[in-house]
Amino acid sequence: MTAKELEKLAYQARLLILEGVHCAKAGHPGGSLSCVDALTTLYFDEMNVDPKDSKNPDRDRFVLSKGHCAPALYAVLALRGYFPKEDIKLLRSIKGHMSGHPDMVNVNGVDMSTGSLGQGISTAVGMALAAKHLGKTYRTYSILGDGELAEGEVWEAFMAAAKWKLDNLCALIDVNGLQIDGATKDVMPTEPLDKKLEAFNWHVIKVDGHDYDAIKAALKEARALKGMPTAILLKTTKGKGVSYMENSVEWHGKAPGDELYEVAVNDLNRHLAELEVE
């Protein structure tokens, strides 16, 4: 899929993220908007998945370790055809099945229930290890937040992935630099991330997390690499695509009211219209 096609899908996903969070009057738009370009690239270009056969044991797996960004996952799954786009209107509602964090039991296409930070990457390591053990060729992908890296379990998982040489595992880290309490560099500094991961025996690729071609190339490089897991450090903008949310910690976990929702929709539609005329 071309970068432009991916971008259109990612902006449609952004509209769904905003719609879901607005309907729910709660949720996490900031981090959803920063990781959705990578998520779109995974589900529409990289991963071997089929919405009509969502439990196929040979499918590629995805774990959203930063589970609070469920709106992004649900939006991309809906666009990919796992369930109707209308379902997103019932995000976080008692009337629907779109729970606040990814739920593998009730949401078609979700490979692992997540939400408690640090656990998702461990489950992804388990899936990749299971593939090696069973002689299967599926790959496992996981998106983590940079704030999430303060969880010790993440580093336990990184060590384990290197021990078992899980070259079928690719972790994408959404380095948007912000978390609930403020800037990640102030709350709990994680840099130099590349050096830390390399010291943990991971192959590291740094890309612009909103550059589809760069993400595609990194994923391709990860697929070709043998003998070690790959981490793609996605340099991203929290709240990307919505003018007033960009680089603002305020929109980590808050829904816009009606007026600001309209501003967001206009921002996103304007960008989609620009993509059409280009």
Binding site: Q119, S122, L134, E153, E156, A157
Partner: peptide, 23 residues
Amino acid sequence: FFDCGIAEANMTAMAAGMSTCGL
């Protein structure tokens, strides 16, 4: 047999992931 080292949190969640793949 998989020795996960002194890292019980990771071992436990890893097992969850493995179980989703038929183990």
